[in-house]
Amino acid sequence: MPLLELRNLYKAFGGLQAISNVSLTVNEGEIVSIIGPNGAGKSTLFNLITGVYRPDRGDILFQGERINGLTPDQVTKKGIARTFQNLRLFTHLTVLENILIPQHHRLKSSWLAAVLRTPTYLKEEEEMRKTALEKLSFFGPRLMSFRLHQPVYVLSYANRRRTEMARAMATDAKLLLLDEPSAGMNPKETKEITQIIRRFRDEGGYTIVLVEHKMNLVGEISDRVVVLDYGEKIAEGDYKDVVNDPKVIEAYLGRREE
C-alpha cells in the first residue's frame, strides 16, 4: 500500500484551473521531488494535501485512509507535516518552544491537569523536551546549547530553516512535505540540507515530498521527479529521463520557433 496516494485531483480558483487531474503515489521511504515553473501549482498541491484547501474533485489517501476535507490540524495528527516556502516560525518564541508546540497535539493531559502540574503532565512535558532535543540533534550541536533558549528572531536564516525542519519533524509525522527547503541558502548550506534530507529518510525513516527549484539538489537526492505545468502532471520518472523530456524542456524554456 502506498503511503500517500492522490487520485485525479482537481482544484480551481474561480476561472483558473490550478490543479487538474493530478494523480500521484508516494511509497514509504521514497524521496519524491515536485518541480515545475512558477505558477505550475506546486504549492497548491501541498495546500491540498495538508488540508488548507479542499479539492473540487478527486481523493487524497494517506495510508489507505481518505483525508480530503480534514482541517490542517487533523491532517497533521494523521502524520503529515510540512515546512513553508517563506518561513512561518513562531518568531518571538524560543527555539525550544517552537519545537514543543508541534508536540502539543499528542498531549493527553487536560488544561486543568497542566495548570495543576499533575505527575502525568510533568512526565509528558519531560518526554516532549526529550523529543525536541532528539529532533534538534539531527542538525548538529549548533542549536542545542544556548540557542535553545533564544528567541527565533535572533537566529540566522540557515538556523531558522533548520528550526523549521525540526519543528515539522517534531509533529511525529511519517510524511514530510518540504516547500523549497534550500531557498535563500548558499552552496555550502544547500549541501548540508541535501545531506540532512537524505538522513531524514535513512536514519529518521521519513518519507519525503519536496518542492525545489535548485536542480542539482533535486538531481542528487530524488528517487523520482514529478513535473507540473499549468496544473497538470506532464512528466514523472527518473531525474535524468525527466530533464531530457522534450515536454519538460518546453515548459521551462518554451518551444523553438521553426
Partner: peptide, 15 residues
Amino acid sequence: EGIREDEIAAEAMGV
C-alpha cells in the same frame, strides 16, 4: 502563543 505568532503555522503544526 503559537496561535498569536502565526495562526496558519500553528494549525499546520496540529494545534
